[in-house]
Amino acid sequence: MSHHIVEVKHLQHTYPDGTIAIKDVSFRITHGESVAIIGANGAGKSTLLQHLNGCLEASSGQIRIGDTLLSKGTLPDIRRTVGMVFQYPDDQLFMPSVFEDVAFGPLNLGLTDDEVVLRVRDALERVGAGHLTAKPPYHLSGGEKKRVAIASVLAMSPDILVMDEPTSGLDPFARRQLMALLREFQHTKIFTSHDLDMVLELCQRTIVLHEGVIMADGPTGEIFLNDALLAACRLEKPFSMQGCPVCAGRNGTEKTLQHT
């Protein structure tokens, strides 16, 4: 299953205005791993993600998906292998109806009409959006748009799922639904997120980016226990690892009462 491996070597990206967004980033993600890329705003997370399927071109360094080196010639293959879900679903849902949007990828893969219909139905059912098939994207709520955007990528049967801020803008219930859905996806998963509780639940490994440089790469649990690292990278522990503010407050009140 070597085609599920993502290998990034000495990646560097400089924007046209001279901003160096990523500096000498290297990592290797193997089959079935669920990896989070976290960091403060402007740390280079989205830029890094956009390199993984060639949406952005590296200034230097190389990316290998499986045995294939990412280059202009191999882009079509790589884009079939790496399914990318963008942060803003409005950018991703450009077709006039949900059905056509989810069918866009499979049609580009050259599948027959019957196969396309099957794939679309299956993908929409998996994300619980089967009832939205005929709707135009602008009539959907934020959570529905997000689910359809994920279905549009799942319909292409990618080997690697890359998602930029998957839970942003979702209500708690929709967030839970989405996390359950992502847990089901057995292949390689790569997320960027500020939702550190989701990272803690879904990702065994975490890469911490700070100002375009990898500051840490290791098991999620260990990284979230390293207070100094988190503080240096403008991050915090996930809420589930912090003390309960209500209980802490109550204890505090009791202590104060005892003193008086």
Partner: peptide
């Protein structure tokens, strides 16, 4: 936005032709 949409289209295998169902 147009650039992002184009990126999303390329990410889903767009090579300049629309295949209508």
């Amino acid at each position: 936005r147009a650039e992002r949409i184009h990126g999303a289209m390329l990410a889903r295998g767009f090579i300049g032709r629309f295949h209508a169902h």
